[in-house]
Amino acid sequence: MELVCPAGTPAALRAAVEAGAHAVYCGFADETNARNFPGLNFSRAELTDSIRYAHQHGAKVLVAINTFPRAGAQDLWHRAVADAERAGADAVILADVGLLAYATKNHPNLRRHLSVQAAAANADVINFYAAEFGIKRVVLPRVLTVAEIAAINKETEVETEVFVFGGLCVMAEGRCSLSSYATGKSPNMNGVCSPASHVVYDQEGPDLVARLGGFTIHRVGKTDPTPYPTLCKGCFTSKGETGHVFDDPASLNATDLLPQLAKAGVTALKIEGRQRSRAYVAQVVRSFRDAVDALAAGKPMPTGALAALSEGQAMTTGAYAKKWR
């Protein structure tokens, strides 16, 4: 299975490639990608140089242009597709139907992947995207069990890519409006979920209070860790009880499920983390490359190496092994 790894900067891309990534995904430094944060992402020149470096070391580069164009401003997204092809990208990762149609017509030789932001969760819709826009791979949303992924792969010839490590969004990707509600900035349109420009920390007595867009998200004591104020992982009081109403801060780690994912017909394994440091990227990629190589060689897979890198020091297999429906 191909290991697809994150790169928020050229330095992180080099670290991922050196650690054993088969492919790296990244985006331009603008609102065409869903990780549009200050200090992250690539200029056109940086992308060209980084793709050249990756190719010299046998790795692919996939460019995420996975937000939804604003009406009247679609030229920015059109230029991103053209610039990705010009830079030598091995594929673009797209979500918007209009942008997919544009790329299909104007850049027919550029390989197209369907972003997780499209939330394509069944074979019928995946086959529609393949027939209409020639997509070769779909990044599946993180709401499917392994059995459901296996069923999808039996009904489509499109390659499937699944997340195996990193931040776990509790919403159906491409459909979340929480950040938009709190800050006016949409992850699906502006590329930012809980943008740092709307985050404020205040000391109130013994507590440190974290707010997002004026909403109190966390209140912690002096010695307690202060999580980033993301709405879906906020701590709220409901029916007299205080806790993480939507989701506990935890990282997805599907290392132990790699054999089942391989048996289910998965083509590629995706690591989340374009906002992470190059040291983090290198450690996670190296660990997963060891696991993928061990699986391919029929050897026992390494376990426990990534516990220190999980959010809140907690890990979960997410929806992959869930029992409820």
Rank of each mutant, 00 (worst) to 15 (best):
P38H: 07
L269V: 00
L3P: 03
V63D: 04
P302H: 09
M301F: 01
L76R: 03
L168R: 05
Q275D: 15
I152T: 08
A101S: 14
N190E: 14
G312P: 06
V245I: 14
R274I: 00
L208C: 13
F165N: 05
C232H: 11
H55Q: 15
V116W: 09
A89G: 05
A59N: 09
L76T: 11
Q260F: 09
Y102E: 03
Y280I: 06
Y25N: 08
C169W: 11
G166D: 04
I93F: 11
E148S: 14
D202Y: 11
E272A: 02
C5W: 08
H113N: 07
G243T: 13
A282T: 13
L212R: 00
S180K: 14
D83I: 10
V125W: 08
F165V: 10
L212H: 05
G298Y: 12
D248G: 10
A297C: 06
T104D: 01
A279G: 08
I51A: 00
N253K: 04
A80I: 01
K60P: 10
N41Q: 09
A21V: 01
A182K: 03
L309F: 04
D75T: 15
I271T: 03
F37M: 13
A130R: 13
S43G: 15
G265I: 00
A147I: 13
A118Y: 07
R289K: 13
A172S: 13
V220N: 05
A131M: 06
T255H: 05
E311H: 07
P6N: 05
N188I: 00
S238K: 13
A172T: 10
S179Y: 07
A34T: 04
R35K: 10
A54D: 12
Y181R: 05
A119E: 08
A11Y: 02
R276V: 09
P6A: 09
T226W: 00
S177L: 15
G191F: 10
N106Y: 12
A91P: 07
P141Y: 08
A23F: 00
R325E: 15
D75H: 04
D247P: 02
D49I: 05
A80F: 07
K154I: 03
V292I: 12
D49S: 14
R278N: 15
G184T: 12
E18V: 10
D290T: 12
Y181T: 11
F37Q: 13
P6G: 03
A268R: 02
V4R: 00
G191P: 03
G318R: 01
Y228C: 07
G39V: 07
T267A: 15
P259I: 10
A121C: 08
G265W: 10
H218C: 03
G20T: 10
V266K: 06
L62Q: 07
G184P: 01
C169L: 06
L62S: 05
V285H: 11
A254H: 03
F165P: 04
G27H: 04
L47W: 06
I149E: 02
M1Q: 00
R79F: 02
A123Y: 06
R278Y: 15
I126K: 05
R52S: 15
A305H: 11
A172K: 10
E272H: 10
V143H: 12
T32I: 06
V162S: 09
E2S: 09
